[in-house]
Design a binder for these strands. Structure first.
Lengths: 143, 143, 143, 143
DNA sequence: TTTT
DNA sequence: TTTT
């Protein structure tokens, strides 16, 4: 039995993070993946899919600290569909992706000078790739 | 942008296959993936996830011919959530997996003597084989 | 950074399992994946790829107990290339797949009556799936 | 049969692209994936894996135009091991990843104004890259 | 609601 | 609704 999802997409809004009674963190975020194809008339059509991502514990804490609207993420996880009763008493279903792994692929869009996504004076030395300051290279990130 | 799903699971019921006006085949099937884990009391708990799989064209025609309830499948595809209005006028969502690739990993259960997928006298003893004659070994299968 | 491999293929020979000094088990096996395509002349060509799979600890112990030549496996893992010096002092490289997850998809081929993978007198009951006794359902298996 | 590889890593050197007699493009590049773990002494250890990536036709042409040393890539493909005879007549093996899909996740390092990472009008050129509209073409993305 |  |  295998249930595996791999996504690379953009975060639609700032994530929501909450803490359960036992202190466990849970993060929810919306991730968009867009697929382009040509229709019968040869016109390019973009189709965007929105995914509900759920992250627990350590991943949720990283999300709380670093993940913002607009950021590009890699998510690896599992599909889970949970049911709930709506106000009409109708059973409804929500499909979510429970993340087992996450990678930040960008700092998202720039919002202002108070939250730079690249430190001043970043190196341009020959062996310094542009993502030298990518969050996953940072010492204080737990992955 | 990446939107990729990989599943190995069991088919919950015989697939439904229909043909659109243009003659294009579409198959729908339900696939179960079960995950086992131990709860706080150390008891083994099985959690089954049901996936709605949609297959088009050639894959749908293979499904029509060969895929039966109980069969184990490998599915590779993409997540798609489509919306519809229920009888209360409430917008509802259904998440499906659009298959891009499929592999049959077993013949599923036997339905009759005229097309046995298991030789007479085959065992259900603990060491019984699963896919002693997996379809992908057959010369007349188109994949 | 992501380094992920997913394979479904057949085991080419009985695995080799050894135990390190500390008692840690390591298994090595060869897995074949075959891809079919049509060449320029429209002839079907099979191309088989052989993968060196390395499994550690619990997975290696499961391999030792259950995995045989001919069995079909699902392997999820990472690519690792290690170097060594051959008898001419030339640096050589071997690429292996370190397995993080394994699923047995069949019992492999039948070798003889002393270790049948299909017991005589087995049931043909309608609801008996061919993989009724899949190894991953065994109680003494750690997954 | 499934043979699938998913990588996210950094390009180690500018790719090499050549054209076969029939005009088909082939690109070769080295991609590094680094995995961090803690050793027995609790020290963080980085282990870098180098992958030989081979891309054909349209993907190779995109590589020629846009992929540079230092860039971060998503690669989806298959493992292929090919053999050759070295100068001592010893059969040797090289394992490569044949890419079926590629996504640029960064522009790599900046070299100077004479080598912009977005050509004027690139996205509307006849031979525009497959993911010409990918967010990684955006000027306002900070990587 | 993201991104290009 | 599958499978063990």
């Amino acid at each position: 039995m295998v249930n595996k999802v791999i996504l690379i997409g953009n975060v639609g809004a700032d994530p929501e993070v909450r803490y359960l009674d036992g202190g466990v963190a849970v993060a929810n975020l919306r991730l968009a993946t867009t697929e382009s194809y040509k229709n019968k008339n040869g016109e390019k059509v973009d189709q965007t899919e929105w995914h509900n991502i759920v992250l627990w514990r350590g991943l949720a804490e990283i999300v709380e600290k670093y993940v913002k609207k607009g950021m590009r993420l890699y998510i690896e996880g599992r599909i889970r569909t949970r049911s709930w009763d709506d106000q009409n008493g109708v059973k409804r279903y929500t499909t979510e992706i429970y993340a087992d792994n996450m990678q930040m692929l960008s700092f998202g869009r720039q919002e202002g000078a108070d939250m730079p996504n690249r430190a001043p004076g970043a190196s341009t030395a020959p062996s310094a790739p542009m993502n030298a300051a990518a969050p996953d290279d940072s010492d204080d990130l737990p992955f």
